[in-house]
Design a protein around this nucleic acid. Sequence first.
DNA 1: GACTAAGTTTCACATAATGGAACCCAAGGG
DNA 2: CCCTTGGGTTCCATTATGTGAAACTTAGTC
Lengths: 261, 261
Amino acid sequence: MGTEGHADGTVGKALDVLDLVASYGRPVRFSEVLENAIYPKATLYRFLQTLTHQGMLAYDADRQTYSLGVRLVRLAHAAWAQSSLAPLARPYLDELASQTGETIHLAQMDQGQVLYVDKRNATRPVDMFSQAGKVGPAYCTGVGKAMLAFMPAEAVSAAVARQSFHRFTQQTLDSPEKLMAELAAISARGHAFDREEHEPGIICCAVPILSRSGKVLGALSVTSTTSRTNLQALEGHAATIKDCAARIAAEAENWRFPEQN
Amino acid sequence: MGTEGHADGTVGKALDVLDLVASYGRPVRFSEVLENAIYPKATLYRFLQTLTHQGMLAYDADRQTYSLGVRLVRLAHAAWAQSSLAPLARPYLDELASQTGETIHLAQMDQGQVLYVDKRNATRPVDMFSQAGKVGPAYCTGVGKAMLAFMPAEAVSAAVARQSFHRFTQQTLDSPEKLMAELAAISARGHAFDREEHEPGIICCAVPILSRSGKVLGALSVTSTTSRTNLQALEGHAATIKDCAARIAAEAENWRFPEQN
DNA sequence: GACTAAGTTTCACATAATGGAACCCAAGGG
DNA sequence: CCCTTGGGTTCCATTATGTGAAACTTAGTC
């Protein structure tokens, strides 16, 4: 988690440290960071200094703790705003949410992991920042499998290699073989299910968002619970979701023209 | 905006480049970045490569454009979640929003600028990511002035030095002197107003969120329009807002104990 | 007042960043 | 078809930067 395998260059190392601090989820002392860091004291110290000076970290002099800095929030606003899908998919998600009355997730693939970039919640009005930015496993979520199923072979194997195949529930696909078989089925069917593979009682139906050229832009899912509904009913939404995905893809298509060239 | 004054070390420069890319608000070509960068071609190229390799930027091979990477969104989620105020202030903002029926902003100070970290909108249910992370001027917003008024002298002068004093409206305080006088008044009164200083028709009443030791943690404001209400009416909410700010501060107080020591 | 742990600074050394220049290559244009 | 143009990429000698063991400075403790 915190420490990546090999960090190229000085900035790579610095970003490693940033991730490490982030991984605590709370302000941390220098010595705490030091314990989990792969860098010697002086080096780590300098990195923390630099990052703090740059506003990527914030240092609380009273408590002598480092936490993530506001510059990140600012950057993220920009990142989210220009992250291909999220802002432009907004109205479509709203529509889909009201059509289905269920929870909607919009996700993208990030290094073999699912990154949720937006969400509509049936009950609670909204939870944006708190949910968007979250990451999840690819091999046992609807959106994850939907994206994998439509990615080029070598990207899939790279992603599969990074999966933990932890067995969250009875239904979790716990091996690359099972996953590959499932991906084939999804690819044929056009949509993926989550059959309580990640959390008991939570099911979903997901479809990929594909560009005209077939590139996976992201995925869209309708989530519910076994107590409220079942897979058959969710599959009933499949056409609606696909339609929504198609419209988001279309929107993305002409969005990609900042200027003529 | 993009290029900061002086960037210490290699990571500083890299982050500069990151900001620069972010500042475009859309995917950019190498040559475009080069135009506005202060680094020579080869150097810039290497930075973009590194940042891309690190997931801070994303490179679209088809269009040959760089945009902000998903790693940022992930980091920002963590940043927001642990950024002192926003998550813990959440329920209080909800409450304040329903009490006042007006738009609520929660902001923090970042390098002399106001950074909005959360928002409740009276009419539209919510706009999180799209609003949080936004930055605004400190000298002509309620939250900005509320924070400045309670910051230590040298921090204030540092911040004031960074203000542009652009005259957004007739009412904008367009000089350090006017601002300092206003800050004194705010400090005495305990709350700040925005008298259409930033946008015509937009008024607000803001209070600082102060820690027990008197440190400025952030600010809270109730915003409305001149067509709906007036300053006197907003001032009527002052006590409510102050109470809310006090409770957020109290919550922040015992939040700051990750472990005993 | 000696002991300890956390945090900070130093400095000789090695690595990594630098950027001018050369190179590649696709797109025009004569 | 060759020549040019310009964005994009790579090379490599030079040099600035980062490196980290060790020394040092607090701030607590017994």
